[in-house]
Structure formats: structure tokens, C-alpha cells
């Protein structure tokens, strides 16, 4: 009898933990209702629908392999100076706290790009921070992919 009660409790706990599971990087969710910031979220369901349609990627670039392994894309942009600065600083803090690794850094005249990567058993993420003169954009790719899957996108 005790064993049954314990089993029931374990099942309930597992169900409750399942409810809390997430398909995106939670730290960026707060920008969904932030002022002067545009937040776009594309869910796994929509990505699967997109995958079925299978639009061609840019010539020489293989984006389809990663598309199939994504569980969510968050796109956060801001043209407002103070909001953009806050977004940039916040992203750097999230990346530092989340122990992301710097994958690539591209500094051009008017654009600075940082690409961070974190690989996890349950969820991996790639954060791309683009800092331009008049705009800051953060794109977060979440899913169950490896570093090699990301690098497959290069020629």
C-alpha cells in the first residue's frame, strides 16, 4: 500500500515538473511586454509547420539541419537607445550567468556581432547579439542540437 502511495506521489511530481518544462530561454521572456522593444517568438509547433513547407535556404548555407532540431526562436530588437543599451547589457549578463561560450565575434565598421553557444542534455541554445549604430538585436535559438549542428551551417 505504501509503495502505491509513493508511486502516485512520484507520478504527480513528474507531471508537475512536465508542466514547468520550457522550449525557450526563459530569461528573455520578460522582453515580451517591455517598452520600446519588439519581441517575436516562434514556437516548436510553428517551426515544425515551417519545416514541412521546406523553403530553400541561402545558396551554400544549410539551415535545414538546424531548423529540424529547434524548439523555439526568440527575436528581440530595439531601436530606442536606452532600451537597446539595457537589452545589450542584459544579454551579456544572461550569457555570463548561463555559462555560454563565445562561438564567434565579428567586428565590422558599423556592426558588432557576438555569437554565444551553450550545449545541454535537455536544451541547447545559441544567442546572437547584433549591435548596430541604430539598433540592437538578439536572436535566441533553442533546441536539442550540438555544436556540430551549428557549424554545419557554415560553407
Amino acid at each position: 500500500m505504501k509503495a502505491i502511495v509513493i508511486k502516485i506521489m512520484i507520478c504527480v511530481a513528474m507531471l508537475m515538473s512536465g508542466i514547468q518544462a520550457n522550449a525557450q530561454v526563459k530569461e528573455f521572456e520578460k522582453y515580451a511586454d517591455a517598452k520600446n522593444v519588439t519581441y517575436v517568438y516562434v514556437s516548436k509547433f510553428m517551426l515544425q509547420m515551417a519545416g514541412k513547407a521546406a523553403a530553400p535556404s541561402l545558396p551554400g548555407m544549410n539551415t535545414k539541419s538546424l531548423m529540424g532540431k529547434l524548439t523555439g526562436i526568440q527575436i528581440i530588437t530595439s531601436e530606442d537607445k536606452s532600451a537597446a543599451t539595457r537589452l545589450k547589457n542584459d544579454t551579456q549578463a544572461i550569457v555570463k550567468q548561463g555559462k555560454y561560450e563565445l562561438l564567434m565575434q565579428v567586428d565590422e565598421d558599423e556592426q558588432k556581432v557576438r555569437i554565444y553557444h551553450r550545449e545541454g542534455k535537455k536544451q541547447s541554445a545559441v544567442v546572437m547579439l547584433t549591435d548596430e549604430e541604430d539598433e540592437v538585436a538578439v536572436i535566441v535559438f533553442s533546441g536539442t542540437f550540438s555544436f556540430d549542428d551549428v557549424m554545419k551551417m557554415t560553407k
Binding site: 523553403a55 546572437m128 560553407k155
Partner: peptide, 17 residues
Amino acid sequence: AQQEAERALNLLAVNLN
């Protein structure tokens, strides 16, 4: 959604390249 996802992925691919 597909167009936005493709745009984001292409941007990532361009910067990686």
C-alpha cells in the same frame, strides 16, 4: 512564422560564415 525563422537562421548562417 516560417519566413521569420528562415530570416533568423540565414542571419546566423551569414554571420557564422
